[in-house]
Design a protein around this nucleic acid. Structure first.
Lengths: 251, 251
DNA sequence: ACGCATTTGTTCGTATGTATT
DNA sequence: TAATACATACGAACAAATGCG
């Protein structure tokens, strides 16, 4: 009784020749994307979803399992299943892999350098899949440990979804920047790719990071994606790794 | 009928207050560690394992599922479940995240520089959890793209499990070095941690990589673990990232 | 080329355990 | 304590891929 029913009953316009649980997964993802459930909120219980999609609880469970391993949802026994958010303690620095060499917990102050709106440079437009005429925000900021600058970030955001972004609002918010994006603009980052290089400090970067010109810096270029593999942020970071390192786990 | 039976029937000396499928997972891991099934071989079918452990097929399945996501096992529909190995094409450069900037497939030549046996330096001994008096192998090698050196690796291995390692055997083997370790010494690397920094080229490293002294290089310190979270390799790599980058996916 | 047996993959249903409110 | 929701466990059936005769 596995493959006959699904198409008519629960689904309709979906790929259709995929396993049921994957079709459910697609439907759940659409609801997330469409904002039916907001970050931090609980989604309906497995039993409710099973009734809604006319499949068994186990099938819903398998779909949710995969969305949970992809960090789109968070399961909490006894409470429910929740839409993942960047504004919780546990996922605070979800995308920042930098750690102090002494294994202390990382805690960085932010200093905003500037926030401008301008025509997208060609490389930025290409990375963000924008037209050459589209506008973008360029945000530059420092992250400091104590008085010591550690990270210089240059952040590029498409102007359209971030309409209304200002330096004041950037400075004003508390918590991670991705939580700010999520709450104030409804843009959820769900995954990212990074390209890492060693480069020599040059120009104002050396000055801002208080290192000698030519000093080695870690260059981290991050492209962050929202639902549907849509790129919505290009972030170019320069990390001073004199007292910090980038940590990565290989499995 | 869920939690009463397991302890007497299948398991006996295991944590015991854990879910059944986790106990099964532990037992499977022990068999892997003990060499009951060798890398590349098939393990018994789910039904056989269910009979052996006196649990349902679904419970075995969940245990295998987790071991598969941890890359200890590989499932193949219609064929069976196999012990993961480093000697297959698909998992060739499982731990090497370096990629050419032009997105071409990576293909590097190896050039062995030296392979020596010596008393473990203190930092190496600490990383590998060895006594100060223990011996280690130090292997140094270059990875080249065409004629251009890209990676300089310094590899530290505890002497005991790698007894009999020589430069000749290192040069003689085909395929990834981890496959060589696996086949010739029975040492399987199952996960690794990396610490990444930007450093300035110095001394013979600059010469060997054919870069100017002071040029920025990516420093990648990798600690690889075998079963039971036992560290068995410390690898210090210097990557020339002029035409390559370290790729990382954040989820 | 065909069919059969084997093995994993999917789906359903049911019952019970455990955490939260 | 009771209700709710996720977590674990069992059993059964069929689908899909594979390999063999």
């Amino acid at each position: 009784m596995s493959e006959a029913a699904p198409v008519e009953s629960a689904v309709s316009q979906t790929p259709s020749f995929a396993p049921l649980y994957q079709q459910i997964k697609t439907l759940l993802t659409r609801s997330l994307q469409g904002g039916e459930w907001k970050p931090g909120e609980a989604i309906p219980s497995e039993i409710e979803l099973a009734a809604r999609f006319k499949v068994s609880q186990g099938t819903v469970r398998k779909a949710i399992d995969e969305l949970a391993t992809e960090n789109l949802l968070v399961r909490r026994q006894g409470k429910g299943t929740f839409v993942a958010t960047h504004s919780e303690e546990r996922t605070q620095y979800r995308f920042l892999r930098l750690q102090p060499d002494d294994e202390a917990a990382i805690s960085l102050r932010r200093r905003l350098l500037d926030c401008r709106r301008l025509r997208a440079p060609v490389d930025v437009a290409r990375a963000l899949a924008l037209k050459a005429s589209d506008n973008v925000f360029q945000v530059r900021r420092l992250l400091l440990q104590g008085e010591q600058p550690v990270v210089l970030d240059e952040i590029w955001l498409p102007a359209a979804p971030f309409k209304g972004l200002t330096a004041e609002r950037l400075v004003g918010h508390r918590g991670p920047m991705y939580a700010f994006f999520e709450g104030d603009f409804g843009v959820r980052m769900i995954r990212a790719d990074e390209r890492i290089r060693a480069v020599a400090a040059a120009g104002d970067a050396a000055q801002l990071l208080a290192v000698a010109p030519g000093a080695p810096l870690l260059s981290v270029e991050r492209l962050s994606y929202t639902y549907g593999d849509k790129p919505v942020e290009l972030r170019r970071g320069l990390y001073d790794t004199a007292h910090h390192h980038y940590r990565n786990a290989l499995n």
